[in-house]
Amino acid sequence: MKLRELEGALGEVRPFGKPKVALEQYPTGAHLAACMLHTMAGAFDELEGCVVADLGCGTGVLSIGAALAGAERVVGVDVDPDALAICKENIDDFELEGEIDLLHAAIGAGVPLPIRPGSVDVVVMNPPFGTKTKGADAAFMAAARALEPRAVWSLHKSSTRGFLEKHALKTLGFSSAEVVAEMRYDLPKTYKFHKKASLDIEVDLWRFGLERDED
């Protein structure tokens, strides 16, 4: 699927009804999601035929996009039942019930995911940036690492680049950590404490790689 088609399709994904600030529920924009998935599918060939886990799937932009862009099967995981309900409607609208399964579970420090290591090929996620719950981004990375996928694709604030690289390689034991693209997160005014109508945040698209015997 072409980048523009993918972006157009993802523009139809229904947003959060009442986003929850404690969970840092921000919409993943259609443009950002499409660029991310297009890079995974194209330059890295890490979607086609893959089993993908989407951690913190929210309303399902990345899950749906992954399925549209060639992933064979997607499992979307989220802690928030309201987000999962919207996600389910979105999946139904796109007629992707066969391709995407949802799982209600927490992703955080000290809580392992109920998923057997090695059972997914690739993790894709737009985690909380850790501005409300300190360390939430690092906890998502640890949860993703524990699944032992071939690669984790994730968006993070550019300002945390140095820390993330060290965290990925030294603490979590990824075999590689690479900023694949620098992007802009066009954040529309989501919460009352946002003063501006929209805000550009610089984000990095990371690929954290793991060498596995079977690959």
């Binding site: 499992v75 399964d101 809580v111 995911l113 998923i115 057997r116």
Partner: peptide, 21 residues
């Protein structure tokens, strides 16, 4: 939940050693 997903899931309650399948 498809059976592919079921094949991935394990119980992660603290203290459980063999929560699969």
């Amino acid at each position: 939940m498809k059976l592919l997903t079921h094949n991935m899931l394990q119980c992660h309650v603290k203290g459980v050693r063999n929560g699969y399948p």
